[in-house]
Amino acid sequence: MEQPQVSDHQPKAASSGAAYEDTHVHAVYEAIAPHFSATRHKPWPRVASFLNAQPPGSVGLDVGCGNGKYLPVNPRLHLLGSDRSAALQDTLVPWVMKGPKGDPNEKGTTYQRYYHLYREGELEEDVLAAGGAVLEAGYERDNWWVVCSKQQQQPGDP
């Protein structure tokens, strides 16, 4: 795997962070994409329930959508998906790529996959910092989730 080229005008910390991200996030997801996608096909019940409860024509954004498994859940919605983080430094989780079924000699390859582990309340803080409003929040299947909207402007606000 070829290391990404980093321009000379970037500070050393920024360039090493970008190289780390390219190596442990983007390159790994490129390598494991078919296998990863094959394991991400069934929507979580809470998310599917939320999407099916939205009025027709609603617009939504799935940030970190992976293979987009939630995009077709409710065809009456206009959902946009995005899956590329801009600023990381968190944890790496092993992803073992299995060999072909029935081949006892195939050991598989282990990749270190980037994963952001939110602490309780952090996702809500991110929504507020981005100018949004948290409508609901919770924890399901080892993941924090939020339902958010654009912050409503109050009378007298500029």
Rank of each mutant, 00 (worst) to 15 (best):
D62Q: 08
V63R: 04
G108P: 02
N67M: 07
E106H: 15
S58R: 00
D126Q: 09
P72F: 04
T109M: 05
A133Q: 12
R84C: 11
W95H: 13
G68N: 05
W95E: 04
P94A: 06
Y115C: 15
G81I: 00
V134P: 04
E136C: 05
V59W: 02
A137E: 11
K98F: 08
R113F: 04
Y118W: 15
V63G: 06
D126V: 03
H78T: 11
P100A: 07
L117E: 12
E136N: 02
G99V: 06
L117V: 07
P75G: 13
C65H: 00
L123W: 02
A129G: 11
S58V: 09
P104Y: 10
G57R: 11
E120I: 08
A133M: 09
A129S: 15
Y115Q: 12
D90Y: 07
E124K: 00
Y70S: 06
L135S: 10
Y70Q: 08
D103Y: 08
V59C: 07
G138E: 02
P100Q: 14
L79D: 08
L135F: 09
L123R: 08
G57K: 01
E120Y: 05
L71F: 07
L128H: 12
V93H: 00
G60D: 02
D83S: 12
E125Y: 04
V93F: 03
E106C: 12
P100Y: 02
P56R: 00
D83C: 05
G121V: 05
L117W: 04
E120T: 11
V63N: 05
G64K: 01
G121E: 10
A87N: 09
Y118R: 03
L77Y: 14
P56L: 00
E122A: 14
K101V: 15
D142E: 14
K107I: 10
Q112H: 12
L92T: 06
G68D: 06
R141K: 15
G99T: 09
Y70H: 00
G81Q: 06
V63K: 02
N105V: 10
E106K: 03
P72D: 05
G60P: 05
V63A: 01
P100K: 10
Q89W: 14
D83I: 11
K101F: 12
Y114A: 09
K101D: 15
K107S: 06
A87Y: 15
L123P: 03
Y114E: 05
N143W: 05
Y118A: 00
K69Q: 13
V59D: 08
D126N: 00
E122D: 09
R119P: 00
G66C: 08
K107M: 15
L77F: 11
T91L: 06
V59M: 12
G121S: 07
Q112P: 15
D83Y: 04
S85C: 13
D90C: 03
G66N: 04
P100N: 02
L135M: 13
V59N: 03
G102H: 00
M97Q: 13
L117I: 07
L80R: 15
L117S: 03
R113P: 05
H116W: 01
G66S: 12
S85D: 08
K107N: 12
G132C: 02
L71V: 06
E122K: 09
Y139S: 03
E140S: 11
